[in-house]
Design a protein around this nucleic acid. Structure first.
Lengths: 232, 232
DNA sequence: GATGTTGTATTTGGATCCAAAGTAAAGGTC
DNA sequence: GACCTTTACTTTGGATCCAAATACAACATC
């Protein structure tokens, strides 16, 4: 069993994310199937999954079409992630964070410090940051007491530009991105501080603000565009 | 084309919601297919949809199992809905609500007033409230500027007890439920008031608190259980 | 007697076939 | 010439068939 089902979903997700299919275009099952070299069956299964993820939407009575995202959609998706991660952080602060979790968060904090300690950013640092950032966020969301919040965030992250690790805009302008990551690092540390002191409201607001870092901090720091580009 | 696909999804959703399948039980495709009187194909499609909705989860390498929900999951799902509807309300307040929307919200407010004016609750009032409540929430969420928030709420509502219209606990104790609906009505009116005056933070908090009405208000009002029962 | 291995049965994934619904096009009528 | 009707084609949904993988069990070996 080649288990091409999962593969078809991720391949289609990638193709759509890369804009390979124009927004609003109807996707025919046969066309996609031939293009991917599989039968119609796995494509049909994948379409249902991608519909639930929000990347496809039903085109009337006739199949699916690529969902088009406006500027407002991107902005909303970022805010949704913000309030959900904020919720997770607040619950964590209110229920008290375990010593183990505090230790783990401290690890990612330290990794961030080490990464930024040298005062500039290298090409390969981007992946390192992306990793530790992902771990940091997953550690908080995963400890919120229920997988429900994490699931909601995961579904939201399927939307383009909504994921937490789509911060990096331009790997050419690493010197300018450095300041942004510095701010992100400070926000991470402040979140942990708030969590440690059981300051639920503060932790929540910090996480909500932290979500905007890839969206609104560009204009603030005088970077080119305020709008981020996904980088996976 | 009988379009049994959609039908299978909703039938399975209902069966799972009613606890027809024990939590954690593995669901075989053939068994479900025979039970529903259809082929394996629509069942396979439905399983993928229900997996994304969070009602099923993969059972190792072999098929799916009914996801089990703890008390904490239910609580989290309600909070998730709260923060998302709160986000929608805040955005609405910040961007200013149109005259048309204000008029529509006023309609549902008035319907609620009319329903509760007679001082008690009848059996058939439950459906009426459920309808106007749904319209009220959909009007706010649908006007938040992007379908992204509404989608996230819709996905969250697939979880049992998370939907906004699962307020009614017991249609036998209508006199006690009346007080709960009175509070809900007041909260609706306060939300509209806040929206009208552009009080984003207040609208957000009111919506967040409003989400708890089916969860925590029971104990407050001296009702039997604090935990709601879905009623669709 | 316990553990590892092999063989069989069950079950899922993929491909193909058939039917039905929808769409588009062509033709006819007013 | 415009609009309605009918027909043909495209496309999706459902059922069945086949292959592959996993799980279970029986057997053999240490």
């Amino acid at each position: 069993m080649g288990n091409s089902d999962k593969s078809v979903v991720s391949r289609l997700r990638k193709l759509i994310g890369e804009g390979h299919y124009p927004s609003g275009e109807r996707l025919g099952e046969v066309a996609v199937a031939e293009q991917l070299g599989v039968s119609r069956t796995p494509v049909r299964l994948a379409f249902r999954t991608l519909e639930q993820e929000g990347l496809l939407q039903r085109a009337g009575k006739r199949g699916f079409m690529v969902r088009e995202f406006t500027e407002a959609d991107v902005h909303c998706a970022v805010e949704v992630r913000g309030v959900l991660e904020g919720l997770a952080a607040r619950r964590l602060a209110e229920h008290g964070l375990s010593g183990a979790l505090e230790a783990e968060l401290q690890v990612w904090i330290q990794r961030g410090r080490d990464l930024l300690a040298k005062g500039y950013l290298e090409e390969r640092d981007v992946d390192v940051w992306s990793e530790l950032n992902r771990h940091f966020h997953e550690a908080i969301v995963g400890s919120a007491g229920s997988p429900v919040i994490g699931d909601a965030i995961a579904r939201n992250n399927h939307l383009p530009f909504a994921a937490a690790d789509s911060i990096i805009i331009d790997s050419e302008a690493l010197d300018r991105e450095y300041r942004k990551l510095q701010l992100a690092q400070v926000q991470h540390e402040l979140v942990v501080q708030a969590l440690r002191h059981g300051e639920g409201a503060r932790a929540e607001m910090l996480m909500r603000e932290h979500a905007f870092i890839g969206l609104r901090y560009g204009e603030l720091l005088g970077l080119g565009s305020g709008r981020g580009q996904a980088e996976d």
